[in-house]
């Protein structure tokens, strides 16, 4: 593989990874705070993609502007979903949590299928259809590097929004409470924090984040009712790799998986790229289930008892 090609692939991988990062932050956040793995996460992504598509289709709304609609809409959907379904699973068995969210995923997928059929739909942007060319850089012996504008825009927006969110978690009061709750539920409760309220907020923010990712992805990918399930599997890999509950981990994991995906589909073929990152997934689960940035021991059900 020559250098130009390597760089081309690397850039493509990083660009995809940025979106994975944004989409999986919501998943990891929800797990970190509520200890719930949201198997319906991909469906919210899919819904956001559809919303973006229809806004473009009927009103000609630019997908990047539609983020402004998607954000509040998905936030409300998140609140409602929490109130109606998720709230009752807090503290229930893992099996209940998994299958309630799986059931939710089935319902959303197939409602979309019922109403909007299984057609593949795309949004193509006239202003962003020609690739941006970087180079060639003769001095470095690098040929032209092509970058698709939608991917670049998505990456830039995704990473900046992730950073904004990270700063929000780190410095705002709400963010601090969310982090505190994720670190120690009972201590947060003792401090008089209304856990319920923050769970709801966390869940809605998680859905909002994946919604933004959906809007950003619409100009790149085709949407169909089952697209969410394909993506959620990738998101699980990202989140486990980064460490469930770790925002920084999700960002780095997202970019890593993006790179793995591009290289493996180039080197081995697009069919088996999934197999590769699932093998990464299983390897991580086996070798270091807490991920790169997770708390060690998190994967082993309730730690005996803390020190006295």
């Amino acid at each position: 593989m020559d250098l130009s090609l390597f760089i081309q692939l690397l850039i493509s991988g990083i660009l995809i990874g940025g979106i994975y990062a944004l989409a999986s932050i919501g998943l990891t956040l929800i797990f970190g705070v509520m200890k719930i793995v949201n198997f319906a996460h991909g469906e919210f992504l899919m819904v956001a993609m559809y919303v973006t598509f229809w806004l473009f289709h009927y009103f000609g709304l630019d997908p990047y502007l539609s983020i402004l609609v998607v954000m509040p809409l998905l936030f409300i959907i998140g609140i409602v979903t929490y109130q109606v379904f998720i709230r009752k699973t807090i503290g229930a068995s893992v099996l209940t949590q998994i299958f309630v969210t799986l059931g939710l995923s089935m319902v959303i997928q197939n409602l979309v299928l019922l109403f909007w059929s299984a057609d593949f739909r795309t949004v193509s942007l006239s202003y962003a259809s020609t690739p941006i060319v970087f180079g060639p850089y003769a001095s470095l012996n690098i040929e032209e590097i092509l970058v698709n504008p939608p991917r670049l825009i998505a990456f830039v927006l995704a990473i900046s929004l992730s950073l904004v969110f990270y700063l929000f978690l780190k410095y705002s009061y709400t963010g601090k409470v969310i982090r505190a709750t994720s670190q120690d539920r009972s201590a947060a409760l003792l401090m008089g924090i209304n856990i319920e309220k923050f769970y709801r907020l966390t869940f809605a923010i998680g859905i909002l984040l994946v919604g933004i990712a959906g809007a950003l992805m619409m100009p790149i990918y085709t949407v169909h009712p089952f697209v969410g399930f394909d993506f959620v599997l990738v998101l699980f890999v990202v989140v486990v790799l980064g460490g469930m509950g770790s925002i920084v981990g999700a960002m780095i994991g997202g970019i890593f998986i993006g790179i793995v995906e591009i290289f493996s589909s180039f080197l081995i073929g697009p069919d088996s790229k999934q197999a590769i990152y699932f093998l990464v997934f299983i390897a991580v689960l086996v070798i270091r289930p807490s991920g790169l940035f997770g708390l060690k021991g998190e994967e082993e059900l309730e730690h005996i008892e803390t020190i006295d």
């Binding site: 998994i98 299983i282 086996v286 289930p289 994967e299 082993e300 059900l301």
Partner: peptide
């Protein structure tokens, strides 16, 4: 070593 969610994901 995997418990609960992690086993399901694996």
């Amino acid at each position: 070593r995997l418990r609960s969610h992690y086993f399901a994901l694996a």
